[in-house]
Write a protein that binds this DNA or RNA. Structure first.
Length: 310
DNA sequence: GGTAGACCTGGACGC
DNA sequence: GCGTCCAGGTCTACC
């Protein structure tokens, strides 16, 4: 029998805006249903996988309604809640500070960025987004869920896989060995998400630790920083360069534009990434309409600038 | 420290 | 339907 419960949210939380705020809401096992303004996704709990439908029927600041596809015990709920809070960045302490530093986003209320229930899922999603166009990232994540675990493969599961199997069945290409290595590092405790998230550790030391991971370069490390709630760095990829040229009017070669981008966003201090990202997101939405209207199978596969340019 | 080339896949394009 | 080309970060070898 399905279970229902609610999760209280901060007064400024708007479900559709804050879920549809970063591309990962379009990646499996997340399923955004625009006509119902609902996010469906399975979560792996000790008692087994349960699929949850999340929505906010009464709007801003009202609790998130959660409907599970099976009976969910108090213990299951206690286990699921921190995962859900992470996905929706419900515990972000710096929303007000961000709006103080960059008032452009105060009216729309944009500040929170969607992420995965675990850092490990964000890590693998980041690796699958490197050196590919968006439709390939969509495909890799779909197949990882279809082939290994519908609630997204755990580090333990991926650590036991043969790279060749991941390549052949999940289409991850040359990322195969790197994914297994990352899973092994996570399983052994060498890669410790709690340490990375701990505010007592400096952004500098965390960034350095991320850069040392296999398959993670400057872009990946910058992206993982924001997925850890550390917004003090940019994640420069081709989309960022495009933004520098097309929207900010920067000129020169890639290196010069990268340098100019860092200087441009420097005044936003520890909110740099958000200030940059919401400009990019606004561009996508100016082309395709509000992100919460995007159909995952059509618009959701074609929203990046590279695919929009024509 | 900087740079060239390899890595792999999906999609666009031309025939 | 097939072949070719291109886009996309990271890593290694080399200067």
């Amino acid at each position: 029998m399905p279970s229902r419960f609610t999760i209280p949210v901060p007064a400024d939380f708007v479900f559709r805006r804050d879920v549809c705020s970063y591309g990962y809401f379009l990646l499996a096992p997340n399923l955004w249903v625009p006509e119902r303004l609902t996010l469906i996704r399975p979560l792996e709990l000790t008692s087994g996988i349960a699929s949850f439908a999340f929505s906010q029927p009464r709007g801003r600041g009202k609790p998130i309604r959660v409907v599970a596809d099976r009976a969910v015990s108090k213990r299951d709920r206690d286990e699921a809640e921190p995962l859900i809070r992470r996905m929706f960045s419900l515990d972000d302490p710096d929303v007000r500070d961000f709006h103080k530093v960059d008032p452009r986003w105060k009216r729309s209320g944009r500040a929170r960025l969607f992420r995965s229930p675990t850092f490990f899922e964000d890590l693998i999603k980041t690796v699958t987004s490197c050196n590919v166009t968006w439709p390939s990232t969509v495909g890799m994540n779909r197949r990882l869920c279809e082939v290994i675990n519908p609630a997204f493969p755990s580090a333990g599961q991926l650590a036991r896989k043969r790279p060749a199997m991941l390549r052949a069945r999940c289409g991850v290409g040359y990322r195969d060995a790197r994914i297994v290595q990352l899973a092994k590092l996570h399983r052994s405790g060498e890669l410790d998400p709690a340490w990375l998230a701990d505010p007592a550790n400096s952004d500098e030391s965390v960034f350095k630790a991320l850069l040392a991971l296999p398959g993670i370069g400057p872009y990946g490390a910058g992206n993982l920083m924001q997925l850890l709630g550390r917004y003090s760095r940019l994640a420069v990829d081709t989309e960022t360069i495009r933004h520098g040229k097309a929207t900010l009017g920067m000129t020169g070669n890639e290196r010069q534009i990268t340098k100019a981008l860092h200087a441009h966003y420097d005044p936003f201090g520890r909110h740099k990434f958000r200030s940059f990202w919401f400009e990019v997101w606004q561009f996508y939405e100016s082309k395709q309409g509000p992100a919460w209207t995007w159909e995952p199978k059509t618009t959701g596969k074609a929203f990046t600038a590279a695919l929009l340019k024509d």
